[in-house]
Design a protein around this nucleic acid. Structure first.
Lengths: 347, 347
DNA sequence: CGTCATATATGGAACGTTCCAATTTTGCAA
DNA sequence: TTGCAAAATTGGAACGTTCCATATATGACG
């Protein structure tokens, strides 16, 4: 099949015997056009194999309905789940979001943002890469593009964020461990360049204090936020002179790593050492042992962020209220003898 | 900070005291421009906070360097890994690919493709959604856009594909099970509307025959290609009058589900029932028990597909040779007493 | 059969870029 | 100094769309 020249609305107009303006109106679903004419035009569109040129349109329209989702790590199931939650909202709004992965690399993030801006996105949802400079999104603000942060926020930024109540989640989990009788607690994984880390660690410390855990019995071990990081943290912890008996992990990936490390060290997760995760990814329920974790309602947060950016685009504003999502502790088997699957609800 | 009107090359030209043509040349890195002039222009670009308008440029240029990656299921770690492998190649080529998720839904896939075409993509990598109509990509061919299929192919299509040697992988795995002494084998998960399924099941059957497995001892159970599907398959299999003692699973997700099902049924994976996966995702190595799986070199295939589409875009062709990737069986612990981690290489 | 309001349809300018052809500037030899 | 080739710069048309202002068709009413 020969490749025809790309068809334009002029070709459609010729085929249908109308003017280009009429075709344009039909494409936009205007009711200024007589139904029969519209039908004729639509038939012509089929005929010539027309593809709408959004770039040309945006040249005049100035506002576009393309949305970009900038994700820091797509191989982390948590963020993949988040992305899918957002997509659902966009789909029902008739928008196709473009997803781009920054692989936790601020330089790559810069490229990705530039590319999306060049493409003329009308709005963005960003989960910033670790180590993002405070002014990294200044250009977006200048350009007046609506932006929402998802899950992570940036220190001095005025960009609205959608995130779970990290502090409270960490307190819930830590209190649970203390009430189970653990008196030497650890916090595994993450590093202070993330605000999320500050929040979760802050909640952990606060709960430790409230439960009367002695400061010398608190171990904080930074590390990568993936399985490997979790294994490393566990090894370090067990090698200490006075090792902890339970750990709250920065996220579920770290927790899985810690569980793995326990097995490797010949300890029984739950009985010999309690582990709590954070995020409650789908896998947590199916893991062996099932992981006790702080559920952040990933889907709900994704939907919230998506709605927020849509509304901002509609109203042409670049400001919005932060949203702090409720959290639950979902108790499973990874920190003690399996009991009934009690769920302690957040307020 | 007030939102300035969007700056164009004309603003830059005014700021730098040159013509718009000069600015355009600088943007394209032409060596027709005197270095000092170029520096002056670049400074002006910084000044005015300019964002390149790719839409306007494509209007004249007709060929674009935007690439789309259409993935059938981003929450499946296998496809996420694949996407990341491709990204690496694109990154070093200075291209930012846009990822779009179809969630295994042909209708959504249609929308996604339309949107990408409107955006003016210069090339596409597609892992088609299950149940995609044979002529779904006809418009792309008409438009002369280079397309490469990744991992999945479509029955009657002339679009080049990059995929592992599924048949051989399935044979390797099945032979392994038979040599371990299993005489009643099952194939878990998947459904015939996928070419991949045909290939893997075909390899399974061929190896069964070669190893002299009686047809009445072969169980094939279709199912979802995720954990849940794997659990369901296992339950069905064990409920049969003459249940199998080992299963090759359509992919690793199904295999994880089967392992989970075994635990639930009080059987010991490996000892009571052997399980082999397919794809060898990162998690396989870390699972408990570690999953024996057919490694397909996910990263390598991703890179291959990326290079292929780049080359096609460069040479302006829409045809290329299929690539069939080598496979290995990676033996771990899920089908029998842990031995040394022997790797049987494919030719 | 006019007249007018309303419903439809249309031409043309504008959007921000590229690229050709044309023009101006530069450097160098005579 | 002039002449001339090479280097550097520039104006203008074109790309495919939208949208305003205008034109034409339709129908209702006197």
């Amino acid at each position: 099949m020969a490749v025809r020249e790309k068809a334009t609305i002029l070709d459609i107009a010729r085929e249908a015997g109308v003017s280009k303006s009429t075709v344009s109106l039909v494409l936009q679903g205007s009711d200024l056009i007589r139904p029969e004419t519209a039908t004729k035009v639509r038939r012509a569109i089929e005929q010539v194999g027309y593809v709408y040129n959004r770039g040309a349109a945006n040249l005049r329209k100035s506002q576009s309905n393309v949305i970009g989702m900038v994700i820091n790590d797509l191989t982390n199931p948590f963020f993949a789940e988040l992305a899918v939650g957002m997509e659902r909202v966009f789909q029902s709004a008739g928008v196709v979001p473009f997803i781009a992965n920054t692989a936790e690399n601020p330089v790559r993030q810069e490229e990705v943002l530039r590319s999306l801006m060049e493409q003329g996105v009308g709005g963005l949802i960003i989960s910033p890469a670790r180590g993002t400079a405070p002014d990294a999104f200044h250009r977006l603000e200048l350009a007046g593009i609506p932006v929402v942060f998802a899950m992570r926020r940036l220190p001095g930024s005025r960009i609205p964020a959608v995130a779970p109540d990290n502090r409270r989640g960490a307190m819930l989990a830590t209190t649970h461990l203390a009430r189970k009788g653990h008196r030497r607690l650890a916090f595994f994984g993450g590093s202070p360049d993330l605000v999320v880390y500050q929040d979760r660690l802050g909640g952990f410390r606060e709960a430790c204090e409230a439960e009367g855990i002695e400061p010398e019995n608190i171990t904080v071990i930074e590390g990568e936020t993936n399985r490997r990081g979790g294994m490393a943290c566990l090894e370090t912890a067990l090698a200490a002179p006075n090792p902890p008996t339970a750990a709250l992990c920065f996220n579920d990936a770290v927790a899985f790593g810690a569980l793995l490390g326990l097995r490797k060290a010949g300890r029984e997760p739950g009985r010999d050492f309690a582990v709590v995760g954070f995020d409650d990814v789908a896998e947590a329920e199916h893991y062996m042992p099932a992981l006790t974790s702080v559920s952040v309602n990933t889907d709900g947060l994704g939907e919230r962020a998506a709605h927020m950016v849509l509304k901002m685009m509609q109203s042409g504003t670049t400001r919005a209220e932060d949203h702090v999502g409720a959290v639950n502790l979902v108790v499973r088997e990874s920190c003690g003898p399996a009991r009934t699957n009690k769920v302690e609800n957040a307020r």
